[in-house]
Amino acid sequence: MTEPTITQLEPMPGDWRRALAVVAHPDDLEYGCAAAIAAWTDEGREVAYVLATRGEAGIDTLAPAECAPLREREQRASAAVVGVSEVEFLDHRDGVVEYGTALRRDIAAAIRRHRPELVITMNHRDTWGGVAWNTPDHVAVGRATLDAAADAGNRWIFPELTDRGLEPWNGVRWVAVAGSSSPTHAVDATPGMERAVRSLLEHRTYIEVLTEEDPETYVRGFLTGFAEAAGERFGGRPAVTFEVFAR
């Protein structure tokens, strides 16, 4: 018998200058695609972050009022490591984010403000590769982001945004989903990996309640393990993968 052919991943589109990453929680991007973001900002591309929540329900030993500002500080520090200075929070409630028009409107407004060609989000499907259940927040935010990329360009869906001075933006050319079990494209993780490790380590308070392992050992093992596995489909180079939807 012959070995099955491994479908190779395509390089990510490169014809863009501005990207907007929209996710549910602090640390979502750091677990998902920070090495790619570091490489992009090195190339002079602009990347901004929008988070639906402040992650206030993520640490059992910290009440939300105490947890939210701590996780916001960690997220801003984490973003700075990979060259991102614009970080916005939409202040939906952590753990109970609801898919619907309110969330779509908030994300469409962010897309109109930042006017990206590339929008990035996280896995919007029910599971992670069929072996682990996804969280409702990830599903809601990922799905709403895919929809809001179109909403942002239609002046009649949320006309109140135009009234607020946010003119329609129909310039989103791709939505790239990180953490997908059906990736189509990839970015070489090697140039940005060390900064990706440092970026995730900025979420130290959260990491220390997740594992008893040394934080750096845990972070490095997690990120390099996924990147090396993805590299089997990207010419042997460690990779960050995305499922890309063209518009």
Results as ranks from 00 to 15, higher is better:
L103G: 08
A80V: 09
L29V: 13
G100F: 05
T241S: 08
L201S: 02
R113E: 07
G55Q: 01
H185I: 04
G44C: 07
T190G: 11
T7L: 12
H203V: 05
H92M: 15
V131G: 04
M122L: 13
D163M: 13
T190R: 10
D60M: 12
D151Q: 07
A19T: 01
Y31V: 11
T205V: 10
I157F: 07
A102N: 15
R17Q: 09
P168E: 07
P183W: 04
N154I: 14
L201F: 03
I59Q: 13
R17V: 01
A24F: 07
S182G: 14
S180I: 05
S182D: 15
R247P: 06
W169A: 03
E72N: 08
L146H: 06
A77E: 11
A52F: 13
D91C: 03
D163R: 13
L103K: 13
D106L: 06
L200H: 06
A68T: 04
V84K: 01
G192L: 04
A39T: 05
G100T: 09
I120D: 01
P116A: 03
G129S: 04
E216Q: 13
A230V: 06
L90Y: 03
Q75D: 03
A21D: 01
R155A: 12
T61N: 10
P4Y: 04
A102W: 11
R73L: 12
T217R: 15
P136Q: 06
E56G: 10
E117D: 01
H92L: 13
V240C: 08
N170D: 15
G225Y: 03
C67Q: 12
R112S: 00
G179M: 09
A140C: 09
H114W: 08
A176P: 03
E86D: 14
P4H: 02
T162R: 12
G130N: 10
R198P: 02
V197Y: 13
T162K: 12
A140K: 04
E243S: 05
P238F: 01
A68V: 05
D60P: 08
A152L: 09
Y218K: 08
V84I: 07
E98F: 10
G100Y: 03
T145M: 11
P64K: 15
S182W: 12
A36M: 09
L200Y: 05
D15Q: 08
D126W: 03
G95M: 06
E160H: 07
F89C: 04
L9T: 01
A79R: 02
R113W: 02
A176L: 05
D91S: 13
G235K: 02
R173Q: 14
Y206F: 12
W16E: 00
